[in-house]
């Protein structure tokens, strides 16, 4: 936990960090305010968006697009250590390579906790304001989507962290991260049968926050096979472990 305290010492006066986080918060608020007019599957959502308990699923589905921003934030924090050469100095001063990875992973978890709590607050606020059913039961019956979202956020940021340690330059790392998550893996999915690619990192992670109304969609076209959120959690956790391990090995093998 001392590692986390040191991380906070670094970022407390760091404007870039707070600006990116501020953009994240603002965009989430903006989307939610305007989401009454958002159309999913050709149907305007209206007040439907804010109804408990489906609100949690819709909320986490919307939030999952913004994991990209959290990933970029992590990439900036990691590549900074390379461009300022502070990572080198800190290993000289006593940090082990495992601690270097852990200190950034603690930051990842902290950011995921922040965004999950933020979503909980948003959900409760909008739900209590607009939902017709405000019973405790319906409020919290599907709140477990938040825990899936938490796993997803941690996994996304762990992948971003891996790219940052791999590439070491912020611009290139961000491009690689976006290219992999949004282009390369989806292209691979095209080539492979669903039974196989549903276990791929991006697909497994996206299965944690399924698209609301997927069932209707599936009736119209051939159904997409994907893991249920609960089942997707297991490979996602394994991927988090894998990204951490790869990052550690990278540091172990390479000169700083």
């Amino acid at each position: 936990m001392n590692l986390l305290r040191t991380e906070f010492r670094k970022i407390a006066p760091y404007r870039t960090f707070w600006v990116i986080l501020g953009i994240y918060v603002l965009l989430m608020l903006l989307i939610l305010y305007s989401s009454t007019s958002v159309e999913i599957n050709g149907k305007a959502l209206g007040n439907e968006t804010y109804q408990f308990p489906g609100l949690w699923m819709r909320l986490t589905y919307i939030a999952h697009f913004f994991n990209l921003l959290l990933g970029i934030l992590v990439i900036v924090l990691v590549t900074d250590e390379y461009s300022y050469r502070t990572i080198r100095q800190q290993v000289i001063d006593g940090l082990s390579r495992a601690e270097v990875v852990l200190s950034k992973f603690y930051m990842v978890v902290t950011l995921a906790v922040f965004s999950t709590v933020f979503l909980l607050a948003l959900g409760l606020y909008f739900g209590l304001l607009y939902s017709s059913d405000k019973s405790i039961n319906s409020m919290f019956s599907q709140v477990d989507y938040l825990s899936y979202y938490f796993v997803q956020a941690v996994a996304y940021m762990s992948l971003a962290m891996f790219f940052a340690f791999l590439i070491r330059k912020s611009g290139l790392a961000i491009i690689a991260f976006i290219a992999y998550t949004k282009i390369i893996e989806p292209l691979i999915h095209f080539k492979l049968p669903d039974t196989l690619d549903k276990y791929f990192p991006m697909k497994a992670l996206d299965s944690l926050t399924p698209m609301p109304g997927q069932e209707i969609f599936d009736q119209l076209t051939s159904p997409v096979e994907q893991l249920s959120p609960a089942w997707a959690a297991l490979p996602s956790l394994l991927y988090i472990g894998l990204f951490l391990l790869l990052t550690y090995l990278l540091l172990k093998i390479r000169d700083l």
Partner: peptide
């Protein structure tokens, strides 16, 4: 090697940690 946006004192706090 230091964080450019941190003060001298804060940079040393990180190192002291």
């Amino acid at each position: 090697n230091f964080y450019p946006y941190l003060t001298a004192k804060r940079n040393l706090q990180v190192i002291a940690d």
